[in-house]
């Protein structure tokens, strides 16, 4: 299992890498749009005046045997939930992965929606389904903001449970910091407002997809580590037990030899008595 997980880390990492050009270009396009269109307003960018609820998307795993992977990200999510409650907001929970569903269900915490069966190899389709649902709920007012707790894959050895706010999208996040020249002749087809209508949801879905991919890579890394520890531990145990078994067998043989020798000597002694 350690080997399976190792090979999956590589694949998961490749998927993270492969998703990067799109994310970079999309952000780029959005920055351009923000700079070059006069108005940059959209419901997804607007802070709600009096927020009542906050959605929290928790990215966990479907399977266990990954050490504290699921527990760590759930702990992070609990931190977000606590801070949300502190602000007087009602949390609304969305879960990706069976482990998270099990955790919240066991504690009787209601789950608004959950998605399972994809966490090791998340496809873009799943991200799109999750993203659309979240956008719809945000638009309908079921949630007034959205946070996401996932595991950031820094390297195979550094996995960090992180929480980020996804909605509303902070305008600073997409307008960029570079002071590039504004093109007066910039063309939009159709008008920027309508492009934004498609661009912003796409941006959110891409973020959800990135979170799922990072989580998948982390899950496999965590699993490999757990399985390596388990294998090492089992090897160690086997060594100790083999030694104990050998010693016990040796003891038994020694005792038996002693008994035979003792018995033989006793027999010899009796026969000598008989002769005499």
């Amino acid at each position: 299992m350690e080997l399976i997980a190792s090979s999956r880390i590589v694949k998961a990492q490749q998927r993270v890498e492969a998703s990067r050009p799109y994310a970079i270009q999309l952000t780029d396009a959005m920055e351009d749009l923000a700079r070059n269109s006069g108005s940059f307003t959209h419901p997804l960018l607007e802070e709600r005046q009096e927020p009542r609820t906050a959605g929290v998307l928790v990215c966990t795993s479907d399977r266990g045997l990954a050490g504290a992977y699921a527990a760590n990200v759930i702990k992070e999510a609990e931190g977000v939930l606590a801070s949300v409650r502190e602000r007087g907001l009602e949390p609304v929970i969305y879960v990706s992965g069976k482990k998270g569903v099990g955790y919240f269900r066991f504690r009787g915490v209601p789950i608004e929606a959950d998605w399972q069966g994809h966490t090791e190899v998340p496809s873009y389709d799943v991200a799109e389904r999750i993203g659309r649902r979240l956008i719809d709920d945000f638009a309908a007012g079921t949630i007034d903001e959205l946070h996401c707790a996932y595991t950031d894959f820094r390297s195979a050895f550094t996995l960090r449970a992180t929480a980020k706010r996804f909605l509303p999208i902070a305008p600073e996040e997409v307008t960029g910091t570079s002071e590039e020249t504004v093109h007066p002749e910039y063309l939009f087809e159709p008008e920027p407002e309508r492009i934004l209508d498609h661009l912003l949801p796409q941006y959110l879905i891409t973020k959800v997809y990135a979170a799922l991919l990072e989580s998948a890579a982390s899950e496999n890394a965590a699993r490999r580590r757990a399985m390596k520890a388990a294998t090492d531990n089992a090897d160690e145990l086997m060594k100790i037990l083999t030694r104990q078994a050998n010693r016990a067998r040796q003891d038994e043989i020694t005792t038996e030899i002693m008994e035979i020798v003792g018995g033989a000597e006793a027999l010899a002694a009796t026969s000598e008595d008989d002769d005499g």
């Binding site: 002749e185 939009f188 087809e189 159709p190 492009i195």
Partner: peptide
């Protein structure tokens, strides 16, 4: 969405849905 768009080199910056 509003019709065909062709791009040649030197085209003005543009965003098309």
């Amino acid at each position: 969405v509003d019709g065909e768009v062709g791009i040649l080199t030197g085209h003005a910056p543009m965003m098309v849905q």
